[in-house]
């Protein structure tokens, strides 16, 4: 593709209040949306704020709303995101407080991992050193498989941005934190299940999910938080019926 072709880009400037600013960016073959933002920031307007780190889909810092759809911008080609009219509209993620331009405040989002007890809590026998031994987790076991399905989350916030329930209830733990909790519910070495299921049982927990599937539709890592949350709902029912959570 010739470099003379220009891409018309509208970029959100400001915070909660603000407006779109237009830029024309030279079109390049295989160009990613992040390349476009970088071109603007380096060549046209150094005051543009945005976030990225790895550029290869690992760190989860570059997510934005691209033409109305939350995406990881470093792995999104302009050619797949652009509309028929050749326009690109870039906004910060929804359901986050905007710091400036395309950069959002992620603190609350990450805190929700903690609130959902999305961290490993070794079970009792592990705290006794004399008992400590290697725990064997067979890769083919159902629990390990269930954990595997959700383990590759990069914390990009795309699902959080896409979720209507997050938009309706800011306390809702959200798809990413609940997915994280589900991977731990399936960790046979973990001893914190009671506290975890307690943490995710409230009105802001897994039962708030309406199974809209937006998170699953948009997760760039192909994770299906909806099914993880469904797993948590089942774990809750099992717990209520007095069966083990797993």
């Amino acid at each position: 593709m010739s470099e003379s072709k220009l891409l018309h880009v509208e970029v959100w400037r400001g915070a909660a209040e603000g407006k779109f600013q237009s830029f024309d960016v030279p079109r390049r073959e295989h160009q990613t949306v992040l390349d476009v933002v970088t071109q603007i920031q380096r060549e046209q307007d150094a005051t543009l704020s945005y976030r990225f780190a790895c550029r290869v889909g690992m760190c989860g810092s570059c997510a934005m709303v691209v033409n109305g759809r939350p995406r990881w911008t470093c792995r999104t080609r302009v050619s797949t995101a652009v509309k028929a009219d050749g326009r690109l509209r870039l906004e910060p993620l929804k359901n986050f407080t905007v710091v400036k331009d395309l950069a959002v405040e992620m603190t609350d989002f990450f805190d929700k991992n903690r609130d959902a007890k999305g961290y490993f809590e070794p079970h009792k026998s592990w705290q006794d050193l004399s008992q400590r031994q290697f725990e064997i987790v067979p890769p083919a076991s159902p629990q390990r498989q269930a954990a595997d399905a959700g383990i590759e989350c990069i914390g990009c916030g795309v699902c959080h941005s896409a979720c209507d329930v997050v938009a309706w209830n800011e306390d809702y733990l959200g798809p990413a934190a609940l997915n994280r909790a589900w991977t731990l519910v399936n960790d046979v070495r973990d001893g914190g299940q009671e506290a975890r299921l307690g943490a995710i049982s409230g009105s802001a927990g897994c039962h708030a999910c309406h199974t809209h599937m937006n998170c699953t539709q948009f997760c760039p890592k192909g994770i299906a938080p909806t099914y993880s949350i469904a797993g948590l709902k089942r774990a809750m029912v099992s717990r209520a019926l007095g069966r083990s959570a797993r």
């Binding site: 109305g68 939350p70 209507d164």
Partner: peptide, 15 residues
């Protein structure tokens, strides 16, 4: 403009 997340089959089903 209808948001992309409101054009998904799961959302339409819920609606």
């Amino acid at each position: 403009m209808i948001e992309a997340s409101h054009k998904q089959p799961g959302y339409i089903a819920a609606l």
